[in-house]
Design a protein around this nucleic acid. Structure first.
Lengths: 210, 210
DNA sequence: TAGATTGTTAATCGATTAACAATC
DNA sequence: TAGATTGTTAATCGATTAACAATC
């Protein structure tokens, strides 16, 4: 790929995708960067800049075809194919993720649930039985898994991440309250809920929205 | 307040807080920006710049006292006091949040659970009974609530947010898959899980970690 | 005091916005 | 063709990094 695209841009792509999806549902079939900009409260310049990192999806004098742009952004984000995912750590949060239908619609397919707590063995969540983490290697012999949602306490997170990586799972959706950046070569996306809550708390005290 | 502090800085504060907490647990009682920088993989310059937005917490020739800095950042983030929170939408995610002990430790105290689904009425989660959203006004007569965690489908999110605001709840921790920026004066922190997953998906395909 | 390390100013880098020529 | 709106270059703004004087 020619030029590395910044995470600032990538972070905005799902938002474009969402707004375009809504336009699609509303039956709108074309939109200018200007109108999209006023709906999304970003500048039209930014929209055009962002999109042009990936290609010219619009047409002068016309704007953007909503369906086409929606699909193209979907492709950019890898939503044109299925991603198998397992949940490691079947506590409350792990179960919530396993039950979240939305992800499935986007192509993120939960194919297994794993934990180390023997008392969870055989528990069923949304049609899947909880398996022991030690069964994962066998499981991977006849399942392809791309992503592991890591919903375990921080104490075991790093060791578990390394273990998952050694089994060939290269991407971690990390809910544990630690950074996993010490694990080389792993693609990690952090969701630090308590960080988010603290940021909210700061903004309450200082009355700043973004 | 003299100068508005950017959200880029605010977003990093919880991370500092976390690393300092770990140092504290490890019995370290002082640290230089330089050593912290190599642990956290950010520049020492950035650490000093970030902290100096809020005041001079260090001492030349010595560095930072871990305990002191930890406490000060805690104050900045509003962790020196309790924040009452309700959960609106007691599905899987709402229940997971209600059960998450960590938040309590940080001073975010869940005092009520609300939903509009009558079949959930009386259901008990972590010692709290689910109440109907229409009971909220009465509930607020003898409870102070600062934050609402909004874990409901996107269709009702905006209307519900407005309703909460009219009842005096000024801060929303928003898990619904819409932006609530149309609601003026509300402090909103978004946790868009599917956005996060899409970003992960992009980074898998393009093998970039951050 | 000498050494270490901060707080802070200045320099650089990157991201956002503005402007406009290209073109549908 | 004239009008609209993109793609893209240039200008601005803000955030990060480097440097160093202040000072413990």
């Amino acid at each position: 790929m020619e030029k590395e695209i910044s995470q600032a841009v990538i972070r905005r792509m799902p938002r474009y995708y969402r707004y375009l999806g809504e336009l699609l549902d509303a039956g709108v079939d074309r939109i200018s960067s200007n109108e999209l900009s006023s709906r999304m409260r970003v500048t039209a310049s930014q929209i055009r800049q962002d999109l042009n990192n990936f290609g010219g999806f619009g047409q002068q004098g016309y704007g953007y075809n909503v369906r086409y742009l929606y699909d193209e952004i979907g492709k950019i984000l890898g939503l044109d194919r299925t991603h198998n995912m397992i949940v490691v750590g079947v506590g409350n949060l792990g179960q919530a993720i396993a039950n979240y239908v939305k992800f499935e619609k986007l192509g993120f397919c939960i194919v297994g649930l794993f934990d180390i707590d023997p008392s969870l063995r055989g528990k069923q969540v949304r049609g899947l039985f909880v398996q022991m983490l030690e069964e994962l290697p066998a499981f991977l012999e006849d399942h392809t898994v791309e992503i592991a949602a890591l919903t375990i306490p921080k104490e075991n997170a790093e060791a578990t991440a390394k273990q998952l990586q050694s089994l060939g799972i290269g991407a971690i959706w990390n809910f544990a309250h630690v950074d996993l950046d010490c694990v080389e070569g792993l693609v990690v996306e952090n969701v630090h809920l308590s960080d988010s809550l603290m940021q909210l708390s700061y903004n309450i005290a200082n009355h700043n929205d973004r």
